[in-house]
Amino acid sequence: MMMTELDKLTAAVDAADWKTICALQDIPVLGARVVHSVHGDIAVFRNAEDEVFALQDRCAHKAGPLSQGIVHGRQVTCPLHGWKFELASGEAVAPDIGCTRAFDVTVADGQVRLKV
């Protein structure tokens, strides 16, 4: 997601929590990378518009690794049984019901920064 003024402000306040994880180029377009963190594995996605998103790497259905799914638009399809999730919110796309945790993530100077 692009950094808004508010994001920047929050970023400044919580600077300790923002961690640089990789360069934007290190994430394939329409793909993801897995990040180890204190919260468990986090999937960091990049879509065709170079927007980045971060979700807990556990599908709300049976804990499949969303990082390994197919990314399209602003959604990802889980590799195990095909549930779809909104990348921005972590909410399952209807008619499926469920939610996976979303994390704040931004790109600045070509570097991907994750708030954990």
Partner: peptide, 9 residues
């Protein structure tokens, strides 16, 4: 090979 490697935060 990158896809197999895990990043750290």
């Amino acid at each position: 090979r990158r896809q197999f490697e895990t990043l750290e935060a």
